[in-house]
Design a protein around this nucleic acid. Structure first.
Length: 217
DNA sequence: ATCCCGAGGG
DNA sequence: CCCTCTGGAT
């Protein structure tokens, strides 16, 4: 794919997701703690479900200090709809405690330190670095990024490391974090693995999967 | 009834 | 490497 096509896809997606007002907290680069928590919460669920609990959660526990003092059972009650709620609650509380104890309540800005936090692996850490700090941490290739970028034709490979290289070559560094978010969101909301909603896809005109009638072979 | 696919643990 | 955790979408 040509770089100008890739950049066109980026701006169409960005406008679409700003208009839909979904998960704008991921695009705000000003609250690393809430970005971290939202990212942990987002595993194995939908944007809508996460958005449905974030108000109550952050109203009760807006920062690492209050979250570190929270009753686990109270966190569980709030985030239950997002699934894996016992592990997530324990991790969210544990991470908050570690932030208070070891980092003065400040979310660290390096991969090594982030992945020490409970519930934070390389994918989550990567997204936090990109969205909370705008730091060059490459592009985290999860299955959504893999599927969407492959369908669009941004890569011809299914190896995550190769896909990351292809995507980072296609986009300027200052856009990696946002593009990473947009590919994941689009993969969840529209470009479904089994039943992609191509009729309402804002970038279908750029998609080789769509133009080939949802078929590769 | 089945899938989701990240993190952690065995 | 392989398994489990969960509610929600389908």
């Amino acid at each position: 794919m040509m770089k100008d096509t890739a950049c066109r896809i980026f701006s169409v997606l960005l406008n679409q997701y700003i208009r839909e007002d979904t998960n704008l907290n991921f695009l705000e680069f000003d609250n690393p703690f809430q970005i971290l928590i939202m990212t942990i919460l987002s595993a194995q669920t939908t944007d809508r479900t996460v958005n449905s609990v974030k108000g109550r959660l952050f109203e009760a526990y807006p920062d690492p200090h209050s979250m570190a003092d929270a009753e686990i059972s109270k966190i569980e009650e709030i985030i239950r709809p997002t699934g894996f709620y016992r592990a997530k609650s324990k991790n969210i509380r544990g991470a908050s405690e570690m932030l208070v104890r070891e980092y003065d309540g400040v979310v660290p800005d390096s991969m090594e330190e982030l992945i020490k936090l409970p519930g934070v692996g390389r994918k989550t850490a990567n997204i936090v670095l990109n969205h909370a700090y705008g730091i060059d941490a490459g592009i985290a290739v999860d299955t959504h990024v893999k599927r969407v970028s492959y369908r669009l034709g941004m890569t011809d490979n299914t190896d995550p490391d190769k896909i990351e290289r292809d995507l980072t070559a296609l986009y300027p560094q200052e856009v990696w974090g946002k593009m990473n978010f947009l590919l994941i969101s689009h993969g969840r909301a529209v470009c479904d693995a089994k039943k992609p909603a191509c009729e309402r896809c804002c970038i279908k005109d750029y998609c080789r999967y769509y133009s080939n009638n949802n078929f590769f072979g």
